[in-house]
Computed example of a mutant assay.
Amino acid sequence: MNDFLSFIIFLYTTMQKIVYTQDNLQLLNRSFLFGDSVWVSFFVRNGNLIMSEESYFFLMASMRKMRLNIPLTYTLEFFQELFQREVLDKGIRNGIIQLMAYRIQDEKPLSKSETAFFFEVEESEDILNIQGNIELDLIKEINVNANLLSNIRVHSAENIYAEIYAKENDLDDVILLNPNKKIARSIFGNLLFLQNNVIKIPKQTEGAYISPLMENFVTFIHKNKLAEIEEAEIIAFESQKADEILRISDEKGIHSVSKIRNKTFENEQFSMLVQRWRDAFNLSAL
């Protein structure tokens, strides 16, 4: 295993960033040419991998949905040992590992093509902290699909368009609708709408991402009866009726939504819920 893997480390003044790739990386690979890849996040907290099983099984499910050939070596233990050696042992205490699995460009049929992977990780604040406030708006020019591939992180021209739109309009993110004009997700993650102790979450059948980070948070709330969880079809106007809104992104972490158009939102209750979730992790680590 050590003979065919290599890594590149970039050291910045305040944060470390690690980029790691297998040494059979081809410049003209199918991810580069066609977006033929899947992304899944793994999470580092206080020098440990957390939710690694959930992230691993999501990686396997995502690869199967994209019909990627899964090598027998891609076990949970393989990735745990790899991240221990190449991330944790390099001094990363808190961060998000972004792993991309892709099909190698070769002469074999697509279903028989070999698979490789790449990952990068940047140090960050505690992944279980609310990282800050963000401002959103609704985008109407485009929508996202609600099918088998809508729930996993694959190449999305809609995301690219929406990200440029957000930057041009001084927004941090935008709300994306599906073809039925229901809320699907944001560019980077899922939105949770809190009103009267009920947390509404767009259904995966509406185009929401599968998110190990969000599912862990929601499961904790449900098991401890801290709020009522409701998977629902949510019309755009309901975003204006919410008391609080939270964005949970496997890519960027957790953020409170402070403003959508002219309406501002508090974050008191979600802050309390996230704090209790974090405290539970601290206790389980003892």
Rank of each mutant, 00 (worst) to 15 (best):
K112N: 10
N180F: 12
R185L: 09
E122L: 11
N145M: 06
E168V: 00
L191E: 12
E168S: 02
L136M: 10
K182M: 15
F118N: 12
A157G: 02
L149N: 02
I183K: 03
D126V: 06
S186M: 12
N169F: 10
F117C: 02
L171R: 03
N180R: 09
N133R: 11
H155D: 04
E125L: 13
L128N: 08
N143A: 03
E158C: 00
V198N: 12
L136C: 07
S186P: 02
A116V: 00
A162G: 03
A166K: 03
Q131V: 04
N180A: 11
I187F: 13
F193Y: 15
S124D: 08
K167Q: 13
L136V: 04
K181Q: 13
N129I: 01
I127Q: 09
Q195W: 03
N147S: 07
L148E: 13
A166N: 03
T115S: 15
L194D: 15
L194C: 08
E163W: 01
I130Y: 11
L110V: 09
I164R: 14
Y165P: 04
S150N: 04
E123I: 07
S113A: 14
V121N: 07
N129T: 05
S111N: 06
F188T: 15
E158Y: 03
N133G: 06
F193W: 14
N159L: 02
F119S: 05
S150P: 01
N159I: 02
E158R: 02
R185S: 12
I175E: 03
N151Y: 00
Y161R: 04
I152N: 00
I183E: 02
K182Q: 14
N180C: 01
D173L: 06
V121I: 15
D172C: 01
I160L: 13
I199K: 02
N169G: 05
A166L: 11
N197F: 09
D173S: 08
I160F: 08
D170Y: 07
